[in-house]
């Protein structure tokens, strides 16, 4: 057993921190697209459009039922062999696509449950003033469902941030990939991976604080 090389670890911090923007970019873009897609999927699951509903169920089942890593490999290494236009796709784009599709399946289910949790009276009030389905969803139901779903959605965002570490398997030099390279150069795997673990941990902790504030903000309208 050898002692931890603290000075090496400290020196590594700024190197790895410089990759945080890329990590946040992938997770942020993935989250935005996943939220949009998941909302659409969830609304479809509530409204149940014939035929489309079956496809949505299949989509959700597949992307919840297979590992993210497998999906990323399918997109990045697999699909371009079948669909030639995908050969242009770079690792970051593939990672964002994979994260989007994977997490939208999970988020669709929690948004669907949240929509079902919006009180019946809210639907009826929206109908009574003559709103179309789309207006009702956009103006009344989804905003209220968003509040119900917010804690779980933030959890998925946290999962997504950690999920970006898999992008290094697509050849993207992001935070995890950089740590891997550093470690391979110095043979100080333990130090490098410990630093990377702590960095992810800190990011997630900061987000958790943000989550608390978000929930207070969202609950403002409902405070007596």
């Amino acid at each position: 057993m050898r002692a931890l090389d603290f000075s090496y670890m400290l020196g590594l911090v700024p190197v790895l921190v410089s990759y945080i923007p890329l990590t946040l970019f992938m997770a942020g873009a993935g989250m935005v697209f996943a939220l949009i897609l998941a909302s659409a999927l969830a609304v479809e699951r509530v409204v149940k459009v014939p035929v489309l509903d079956g496809l949505v169920v299949l989509f959700i089942s597949f992307f919840r039922g297979t590992p993210l890593l497998v999906q990323l490999f399918l997109f990045y290494y697999g699909l371009p062999q079948v669909l030639s236009f995908l050969t242009q796709i770079n690792g970051v784009t593939a990672a964002i696509m994979g994260l989007t599709l994977h997490f939208s399946a999970y988020m669709a289910e929690s948004i669907r449950a949240a929509i079902a949790g919006v009180d019946r009276s809210q639907w009826e009030a929206a109908q009574s003033i003559g709103m179309t389905q789309a207006q009702m969803m956009r103006r009344i139901i989804l905003p209220q469902a968003g509040r119900i779903a917010a804690p779980t959605l933030v959890n998925y965002f946290i999962d997504m941030i950690k999920g970006t570490s898999l992008a290094f398997t697509l050849g993207v030099t992001e935070m995890m990939g950089a740590a891997q390279k550093e470690a391979a150069g110095s043979f100080r795997y333990f130090e490098a991976f410990l630093v990377i673990a702590v960095l992810y941990w800190i990011i997630v902790e900061i987000l958790s604080q943000g989550q608390k504030r978000l929930e207070i903000h969202l609950n403002k309208a409902y405070a007596r």
Partner: peptide
């Protein structure tokens, strides 16, 4: 038409 509900049914948001 306009409808007034027994349980008010104001938009909570």
């Amino acid at each position: 038409t306009a409808f007034v509900f027994q349980n008010y049914a104001l938009f909570a948001n």
